[in-house]
Amino acid sequence: MPVETLQEKLVYGRPQVLADVPNHYCPGCGHGIIHKLLAQCIDELGIQQTTILVAPVGCSVLAYNYIKVDGCEAAHGRAPAVATGIKRVHPEATVIAYQGDGDLLAIGTAETIHAANRGEKITVIFVNNAIYGMTGGQMAPTTLQAQKTKTSPYGRNPADVGYPIRACELINTLDAPVFIERCAVSSVKGILKTKRAIMKGLRNQVEKKGYSFIEILSMCPTGWGMEPREAAAWVDSDMTPVFPLGNLRDR
């Protein structure tokens, strides 16, 4: 009588390019998920040896400690400019600017718009968690109306400080970009879509097509003062109506 033995096959493990170290992100923070997706894409495209990651000031300034590729720190808001400088010297490299909402839409708005407008052949990964995480939860350009933060303690008041900025739609007014998509890492389905978007954004660069912009709605449980699962639900219930998910451009 044949003996039924069960063979095990690893079907979900650590991406080779993701360092086997604990990360400093808060429990339930979306950065950890996005780093993993980025690492998976780098592995699958086989571009670890040509990738250069630009990490500006923000919770993810230490991203190069977790993703084993050449890394360059950038001043707050300046990642697209640093990435431009790198890409112009190494056109064959895969240059990624991994930025938060304060970095990309507040202090670095000009760099964001002009790198996109020049069609720099880089890939911008924009983690939108509607708050400044690193500095303890201040209002960001993507903070929602009425959302309470350390610097909008009574809730963001549009009459005083305006409305959340929609980066994808902003970038969509520019002719040069080839790929613009917004996704979310608040659910398994959303994470898988996010991975596809990151993959496309990197492949566009490998194939020298042009500038790719991926906005990722992400949880900040600590900054929002929510349990991680509550934060994930909040992304779907409150953020996506303001920041509609989907592809805006794919040339």
């Binding site: 950038a74 300046r78 400019a81 640093v82 400088g85 010297v89 760099e111």
Partner: peptide, 14 residues
């Protein structure tokens, strides 16, 4: 501001 940061990137690239 962008220019000096492009310089930083290009210099970091050697």
């Amino acid at each position: 501001v962008a220019a000096i940061n492009m310089v930083l990137g290009a210099s970091a690239a050697g």
